[in-house]
């Protein structure tokens, strides 16, 4: 903190686990800061980007004013602009990049799905999901370049559809989706992030009588058994988990103050490879990251 109102954010935007440091600062952000200094950030991946966006939206809703982002490094600014981060209208950006510095929507366009809002109304949401799937199918050969097959495209269509439906079915709020493929060294990643700041899994199941020991265990139940807070059965998260398991990918699912992660690429026979965490800092809603590495 350089003064009472400017908060310098740590360089913790590379992994969802790392982003916990930023979530830990949420009380300070929502409590007193009116400016976030992003000058230390060297890299930002889709889950962290969406979570930052949700923090900004929470701020706007709570304070009635936009949170100011300052000191954004040029490469981060270019990336955020390219992903339509600023189009959401959640933040106050005073230092605009010159038009010439902005990334062109050329070949790079094919490797991302820009931030798209998933409405919390059924009819509009179904339309938006259809549009996202349409764009994804057009760009899939680039987004899934390192893993490409018709089968994997169809798997991802299922995953996008299932997770997005959970937003309007259960969160009581709208959410966002973003997807990107990128390389770090010799390793390639594809990351699909979907998040909302709604009521979260625990509150969504508030009136149900499932037995569970902790919020993280409830998330685990939602991923491993077809429970639903709205109807007799809900298959969505189970289906997502089954597909990610087939693809040997990873899931990071955070809701409220709990998270569950799976790392199927490292799974050994006989182990569940589900990691449960409770007592994290509270972050409203549910955020999911699906990753493949190879």
């Amino acid at each position: 903190m350089t003064d009472n109102r400017i908060l310098t954010v740590p360089n913790r935007f590379k992994e969802p686990y790392d982003f916990e440091y930023v979530i830990d600062l949420q009380e300070q952000i929502l409590g007193g800061a009116d400016e976030l200094d992003l000058s230390r950030i060297s890299f930002i991946e889709p889950y962290s980007m969406l979570s930052l966006l949700l923090i900004g939206r929470n701020y706007l809703r709570k304070k009635g004013t936009k949170l100011k982002l300052t000191g954004i490094p040029i490469n981060i600014h270019q990336y955020l602009h390219r992903m339509d981060f600023f189009k959401t209208g959640v933040f106050d950006i005073t230092d605009r990049l010159d038009e010439k510095m902005l990334l062109k929507r050329s070949s790079f366009s094919n490797r991302v799905l820009e931030i798209t809002e998933i409405p919390n109304k059924e009819r509009e949401s179904v339309r938006v999901i259809g549009a996202i799937i349409g764009v994804f199918r057009k760009r899939a050969e680039h987004i899934l370049k390192y893993w490409l097959s018709d089968r994997i495209i169809d798997y991802y269509v299922t995953v996008i559809s299932e997770i997005c439906q959970n937003i309007y079915e259960h969160s009581l709020d709208s959410g966002y989706l973003a997807m990107q493929t990128y390389s770090v060294g010799k390793e390639n990643f594809v990351r699909l992030a979907i998040g909302d700041s709604g009521i979260g899994i625990l509150k969504s199941f508030g009136n149900n009588t499932f037995a569970y020991d902790s919020p993280a265990q409830l998330i685990e139940l939602a991923m491993t058994t077809p429970i639903s807070s709205k109807r007799e059965f809900g298959y969505g998260l189970c289906q997502v988990k089954a597909i990610v398991e087939k693809l040997k990918g990873t899931i990071y699912l955070r809701s409220g103050n709990a998270s569950v992660s799976t790392m199927y690429q490292r799974r050994t026979p006989g182990s569940s490879f589900l990691f449960l965490k409770n007592d994290l800092s509270n972050f409203d809603g549910t955020q999911i990251l699906i990753s493949l590495a190879g």
Binding site: E122, R123, V126, I129, G130, I133, G134, R137, V157, S161, Q165, E169
Partner: peptide, 8 residues
């Protein structure tokens, strides 16, 4: 589209 998705 080629896909049939969602409850509605």
């Amino acid at each position: 589209g080629p896909d049939l998705l969602t409850r509605p």
